[in-house]
């Protein structure tokens, strides 16, 4: 019993992210019955999985103490490059494999720049994003776009197995795999070590450079894959298609309880973050909120979500135990939100 208690306590951060998501969902369901319908839930799962793909690599990168800003451009790259290859006559499956491989290589370059050249992650990935953007602009300017997205990608994004969308199942598979790798593999443990303190990790015999490079490589591959699926869903490609995902991929990770300083976090937390963001963006239009209102609420929820995942749940727990009496020592500062 005591162990169960400590297990839960150790995961309160993640649990509070799911709780936030559930609360938002219930609000939506109460407000409009259609919100909890199977088709709407499916729709939200599909949207959430795009965020989830982009945020998987981001989770690993952030746990290792880095940051990946190439996300929006790699999302766009996935779809545009796939369509281009397909238009050139390449069969869809090898084309997808090739595109994802190129994404991985771009991620690899990020990793090499960050580890070997010791360029700050923000700067390195920002510059790489710029180069990818330049490539996409060049492709768009030098030849006509509007190529068809191959049918395989379209099917992947819109088919179902029974009541479940294929993308969501793929996402679940990735989540299970990422969860196991992070908590049960040597790579996962070394990843947390690198993020917590890279000097200690290095002196403890961890191949810090390799771990870091791997995280960026995985991030590059996963984000590009997300771009392929997204293009399949939208049915067409354009340069700004990845725009929203810079923000959401990072927000999902930190709402999920990871520290932006590295060394903590989990992919199941990120899944909660992705779901929360998606539920929120489907919920707000129901309240006739304009785009502007949506953005404001988005930001507020992110701040609340991060606060809940880091210190808020402890504070709320304390309040709860005191029978909701205000604690006497509660002053302006709520302590250290380390996320």
């Amino acid at each position: 019993m005591k162990q169960v208690g400590s297990w839960i306590r150790g995961r309160l951060g993640v649990a509070s992210s799911y709780a936030l998501c559930a609360v938002l969902f219930v609000i939506g369901a109460i407000h409009s019955p259609g919100f909890a319908s199977a088709s709407n839930i499916r729709q939200m799962l599909v949207f959430a999985s795009f965020v989830g793909f982009a945020a998987l690599g981001q989770t690993l990168v952030i746990i290792a103490g880095g940051l990946d800003l190439t996300v929006p451009w790699l999302m766009a790259f996935g779809g545009i490059e796939l369509s281009r290859l397909a238009a050139g006559g390449m069969p869809a499956v090898p084309a997808i494999a090739l595109v994802v491989a190129i994404g991985a290589i771009i991620g690899l370059i990020n990793g090499v720049g960050v580890t070997w050249l010791r360029i700050a992650p923000i700067v390195m990935t920002l510059a790489m994003g710029g180069l990818v953007q330049a490539f996409l602009l060049a492709v768009g300017e030098l030849q006509s776009t509007g190529d068809q997205v191959p049918a395989v990608a379209v099917h992947l994004a819109s088919n179902r197995v029974g009541p479940f969308p294929v993308v969501a199942i793929v996402w679940l598979g990735f989540a299970v795999a990422a969860g196991i790798v992070l908590s049960r593999s040597a790579f996962g443990r070394r990843l947390y070590a690198v993020g917590a303190n890279d000097t200690v990790a290095w002196l403890s015999g961890v191949n810090v450079a390799l771990i870091r490079i791997l995280t960026y490589t995985i991030s590059g591959a996963m984000t590009t894959f997300g771009g392929v699926v997204l293009a399949g869903y939208v049915g067409t490609t354009y340069l700004d298609i990845g725009g929203p995902y810079l923000f959401t991929s990072i927000a999902a990770v930190i709402i999920g309880g990871a520290s932006i300083l590295g060394g903590s976090g989990s992919y199941w937390g990120t899944v909660a973050g992705a779901l929360t963001l998606t539920v929120l963006s489907s919920l707000l239009p129901l309240f006739q909120l304009s785009n502007a209102g949506l953005e404001i609420v988005y930001g507020v929820v992110i701040l609340i979500g991060v606060w809940l995942a880091s210190t808020g749940h402890r504070l709320l727990g304390r309040l709860w135990r005191r029978g909701l009496a205000l604690p006497d020592n509660m002053q302006g500062g709520a302590g250290d939100v380390s996320a």
Partner: peptide, 23 residues
């Protein structure tokens, strides 16, 4: 005051301020 990391705090206010501007 609340001890947010600058990156996180401004990630949140970024979209809040964008929303205010659009309003």
């Amino acid at each position: 005051g609340l001890g947010f990391q600058p990156f996180i705090a401004t990630l949140g206010t970024w979209t809040i301020y964008n929303g205010i501007a659009l309003t």
